[in-house]
C-alpha cells in the first residue's frame, strides 16, 4: 500500500542518517532525542495532575 505522505517528507522528519544531535551544559550531555522524551514525560506528568478524570467530579459530589 502506498503511503499518503511523500517519502521525502517522512525522510526529512525521521532522517536518522547522521550522528545524533547532542546538547551539552557543563558536565551534562544529553542527546536531543532524550531531551525531547524527558520533556514529553514532564508534560504528561503535569497534564495527569491538571486534567480532570472522567466522572471524578460527579463521584465526589455524590459522596457529599
Amino acid at each position: 500500500m502506498r503511503s499518503v505522505l511523500p517519502p521525502r517528507l517522512l525522510a526529512a522528519v525521521f532522517n536518522l542518517n547522521h550522528p545524533a544531535r547532542v546538547l551539552e551544559w557543563h558536565f551534562i550531555k544529553l542527546s536531543l532525542a532524550n531531551v525531547v522524551v524527558i520533556g514529553v514525560m514532564l508534560l504528561v506528568f503535569a497534564l495527569a495532575i491538571i486534567l480532570p478524570f472522567p466522572g471524578a467530579k460527579r463521584r465526589r459530589e455524590q459522596r457529599r
Binding site: 506528568f45 497534564l47 495527569a48 495532575i49 486534567l51 478524570f53 466522572g55 471524578a56 463521584r59 465526589r60 459522596r63
Partner: peptide, 11 residues
Amino acid sequence: PTYVASWVYVF
C-alpha cells in the same frame, strides 16, 4: 477510594 479517580493514578 474516591481519590483514585485521577489521571495520576493510571501510570
